[in-house]
Design a binder for these strands. Structure first.
Lengths: 217, 217
DNA sequence: CCATTTCGGGACCATTCGGTCCTGAATTGG
DNA sequence: CCAATTCAGGACCGAATGGTCCCGAAATGG
């Protein structure tokens, strides 16, 4: 009986034997867990949870079935990891873009117009994995619902920071409730992306964005 | 060989023998096709397309497997009928409520606040079947995509009528583009309902609605 | 070179999937 | 009562589902 030592970054955990040290004997990982996770995320993002089969996941990750189960557990656990990864990645990217933008309102505007400009094909108009998940699962699976809630909160936090910076920059009235505006932006993000899935034209989408932005002033 | 005569209202079709007349010999329908369709619609509405099994549909319709297939065809055809039925029913109900409302803007406000007030449980926060479908299928299945597009158009039409009436009543500036506002309302309907699926509190949802309504003025 | 460890692939599992079809019962008009 | 018709239920189907497990191969530290 030896201290379990998993070399995978994401799933490593430490027992009370861990101070002994983790001797890496045996065959090392032959794949990049991050890349595999990313691949699975892409698959779920494109097709949703139910419609993504294990076959799809094997193809997307490049793993064998046994490797996938050993590394990520069952389908739902893998999905949970993908969702977390997506939210962290996406929220961080938004945060970065906000930081490097000289106008917070400009950041918001560009973000939404970029979404409105999404080309009209299936591969690109796949929505937001987080809100897709909210739509598919709703409040049915607590395991998922919790992650969706915290993911949504992460997005809202970035939006709120953007709103408050825009208020400091004089682009949004200071008396507006930044939390409500942040939720409003999340709502419109979801709504707009969903509308794009109905096949809406680019110019119509841009008109919706313009209308939505008017509420910020 | 006799002229096929289907007593079901939804699926009746006429051959070139139909002028002979449709003699209703044999055992008549033992179920109400409308009620069965409604039941199937409820099931799809609650669980989505993929997650709803034939077993679920049999339970929801009260039909035997053979009856269901004879009456509605396969799962996807049944779903298409349910989606059409939902859009017709829902758009008509909205239209009625608009007609009987003395303020078009009030109609819009009440509609959205009612959504925001949806109790926080799984059964009630199941979103809008149309937008759920857009989310689940996206642009992948042409058969579905077309229906989603026309369903969305039906909703937008009601909203547009409401906006234009509100403009006539002086509640929305006449120079605002009613088509863009209508799409904006559809977008927010979808976004708000999706946000509710993340477990959002009632008061936060109402704050989002208030923000969204501000864009109309 | 060897003992140890974990790799990857696939055989195998029961279950469920959507879907077809057969059969006896039920209900009709004549 | 009979012939005609179509009902409802379930047996049955192949395929695919998510998931487990075994085994030879491979890569390690000593």
């Amino acid at each position: 009986m030896v201290s379990p030592c998993n070399t995978s970054p994401g799933l490593t955990f430490w027992t009370f034997w861990s101070h002994i040290g983790c001797m890496s004997v045996g065959r090392p990982l032959q794949f990049d867990p991050r890349a595999s996770l990313e691949g699975a995320m892409e698959a779920f993002w494109s097709r949703g949870y139910e419609a993504t089969s294990l076959q799809d996941l094997l193809a997307a990750t490049g793993l064998s079935k046994s490797s996938l189960y050993r590394e990520f557990g069952d389908k739902q656990q893998l999905f949970a990891h993908c969702l977390d990864h997506y939210c962290r990645r996406q929220a961080e990217a938004m945060h970065q873009r906000l930081e490097h933008s000289d106008s917070a309102l400009g950041f918001i505007e560009q973000l939404f117009y970029n979404i409105a400009d999404t080309p009209r094909n299936e591969a690109q108009r796949r929505g937001c994995l987080l809100m897709n998940t909210a739509s598919e699962f709703g409040l049915s699976e607590p395991e998922i619902t919790d992650r969706v809630a915290s993911g949504k909160a992460a997005f809202a936090r970035v939006f709120r920071a953007a709103v408050e910076r825009a208020q400091g920059e004089g682009d949004i009235p200071a008396e507006r409730n930044s939390k409500a505006l942040a939720d409003y932006l999340v709502s419109n993000m979801s709504g707009l992306r969903n509308l794009l899935k109905t096949g809406m034209e680019r110019r119509d989408a841009r008109a919706v964005v313009a209308t939505m932005l008017a509420a910020l002033r």
